[in-house]
Nucleic acid binder design. Sequence first.
RNA 1: GCCGAAGUGGCGGAAUGGCAGACGCGGCGGUCUCAAACACCGCUGAGGGCAACCUCGUCCGGGUUCGAAUCCCGGCUUCGGUACCA
Length: 883
Amino acid sequence: MHADTPDPSPGPAGGSFHSGLGQDVTTTDRTTSDEGSRAGRPRIERYEPTAIEPKWQERWAELRMYDTDLSDDSRPRYYLLTMYPYPSGALHIGHWYIKTPTDAIARYRRMHGDNVFLPIGFDAFGLPAENAAIKGGFNPRDWTMQNMEKMRGQLRSMGATFAWDAELATCEPAYYRWNQWLFLQLLDRGLAYRAISPVDWCPNDGTLAREQVEGVDRRCWRCGAKVEKRELAQWYLRITRYADELLDFSGIDWPEPIRVQQTNWIGRSSGAEITFESAPSPSHAGGAPIKVFTTRPDTLFGATFLVLAPEHPLVADLIAPERQTDVEAYVKAAADKTEIDRLSTDRDKTGVAIGAEAVNPVNGERVPIFIADYVLGTYGTGAIMAVPAHDERDFAFARRFDLPIVQVVMPRDASPHAELTEAFTAHTADEVMVNSGQFDGRQASEAWHDIVAWLAEQGKGEQTVTYRLRDWLVSRQRYWGTPIPVIHCPVDGPVPVPVADLPVLLPETVDYHGSGDNPLTRDEAFLNVDCPRCGGPAKRETDTLDTFIDSSWYWFRYLSPKLDDAPVDVDLVRRWTPVTQYTGGAEHAVMHLLYSRFFTKAMRDLGLVHESEPFRKLFNQGQILGADGERMSKSRGNVQDPDELVARYGADAVRLYLMFMGPWDQGGPWNTKGISGPVKFLGRVWALTIDPHGREAGDQTDGALPAGEDESDARDRLRAAAHRTLRDVTEDYEGFRWNTMVAKLMELSNLLVRYRGTSVAGLPEWNEAIRLLLLMLAPAAPHITEELWSRVLAANGAEWESIHVQRWPSVDETAIVEQTREVPIQVNGKLRDKVTVPVGISEIELEQIVLARDKVIAAIGDVPVARIIHAGGGRLVNIVLRR
RNA sequence: GCCGAAGUGGCGGAAUGGCAGACGCGGCGGUCUCAAACACCGCUGAGGGCAACCUCGUCCGGGUUCGAAUCCCGGCUUCGGUACCA
């Protein structure tokens, strides 16, 4: 800063005459540590986080500081939501990584006067509880409740400001009855329905989740038996009805990668549905419509065969008797594979002809029909027209089965006779039609529309849109979830449970029989009921709901977790939602974060909520990996236990270290060593505050101010640094840039350390800097700042008031204004010199000074100066020489 | 394969068109101590020079610009997601 004024002007000497200052906050311990007094240096009380953290956590809880008054309209509302944890047993460091910075946001917003609501709860249904229960022979409820109790304690140890009075657990009837209620409403609106679909089924253990099927030969994870596919009646939610609306992200501020993922997942494809007809054959009358979906109707003349999905319903009608055996064998083989296997890209194409033909509507040509598992029954119409010349998969299939390949689209200037060695899939504005009858010579992109129009005229096709997104399968053949409120009557079929009979309670006792299949199917008391419609004997539905239902509306319920006559408090929902800021992992991109958007829209259409989007702003934090760079898991033995760290370094240090590691959205490998940085920093903040006049053994400055500074310079510099830090740190808080926020506070504390024990320690500028430092640090490290704040107040004889109810300080711009500025000087873009000049200097004056510098003259030599660039507001000067 | 994110010292990272490496870890030297630990002070990208200084340097190759870690084009690598979606 004073690089060009090296001569030292000694400031007031010594640093030992300040005990009389009113603002002296030195602790009384200074005099009690007699055995530690060595070399005339009083030992100050050390920073002991474990001694202060529980104390303040209790105090905050006693004062109910963070229960939110939801009816308070006098302040801006800030609904801060963080993904609720699954009660898996214990918190891991990843929970801290997302939750403690979220708490810093809450505290920061409160210091701006916002009414912050930061609820917490538990995603308490799910498979891990059931697996643990089967293994240990106990009730999933007991396991879940115990885990929740442990995790509550751990969550409290973060010092986070959760609104515990709003806590909810989804496994409580008070919550899941409303899952059931919502399900019935969706059923009533046609947004829930039942359909048959294949599930993985083990002969010993019943239905398996996808992750319970192991290895390429698909065996049960528990008993090793070969897993089959079974057709089961399943409940679905009609999320596809909202596909187009879900593609619209206007009005929400979400990370681009999530929006892209959701968009791809929904997978809107514009194309045409084209109707082929079956050709007559000895065993089949012909004339049956076969609908195919294509995004390339312009290639219709190139369709040389048709492929149906193996499970396509028309297969049975069309099949030639002599093909029966082969086709059945193929269909069975396909059914034994999961969709994952079927979709594996590098697999060779397989399929069989079914001995039937179809008629191409555009030219009357007869083409053979195949079934092949590369066509999916669940997408489009489950049937395609195969155009091997213009589709890679069809090309591979045609090569394999020696089928004709007819090119119908080609580049304008290409030779029409060249043989294709791979599918030609380019679809720009520059291709023309060939081998396409009346469309020959037309530009392909125009022919696309012309052919669709022609088909529509003939009643043989229409333009359509297809989505990759499927309806949401919500049936789970599991005990530990929300019972689906339906009764199956032999007379009336599936009948909804009357709303008055809700909740359908999960039975208290559970008998697993040492097996993984759903014990509800064996629970006679649960199972046997009267039909609500005809009163006759009927059976309850034994499937439970996917736990993602629970998390699809939980933030509404936080506002009134105990409300017992409606799922949500319409008035509070109107005032408090959408959620202002949501924080959580990106791994939920196309599940929870998509389902929540769907549910919000569906609940809007049910008249329950007014808005269409759940979360106005979303932030996805990164993932903390093990020290080995791998995902943390018990089996790898690389899990970091936060309790251990808290016991050793304190919650504040852990919070600060997690924030300091790097950008929040980045995550990264855990490295315990690095925590010593934040630990030392907190120790310095402690020492600076309680003992401003102390000096450490080995300090060679001898209490003198830095060379070239007098006391007035030092006071200005302290004040400028404190306010500049405040300005920058405020911006970092706003942008969730915790790592640089902490770094800047470290810089300020380093500066204060330099002045500790000098004549400016304890002066008003010093005290202001300490005060700002504590306030800026308070949201991130709430305990130590609360403790030091209370000591400062006590030392000044002031009444205690929590640091966390203080207002965020405002920047004094006049403190930051400087008299001089250091200007880097470049010659041809290379740094050659620096010069300190008065702030208001003109460009002409600056040039004169710059050009007179020895180093500049040397760098220029005898080459003429072409021009001189003054970069943005005089931040830099660049002298450009003639080439 | 496709989609997304990212490549900067020994390590985590900062700087997003203007002084590369803030801040921290680790390392080296010193002070304090009987000694150690703690704490404190100084140094710490590479190479050269007694020195002042000089040269090189942000994954690789081009380009734009007075000036590029940053913008553009091409490539490589790593991580995440997805998986024959017609």
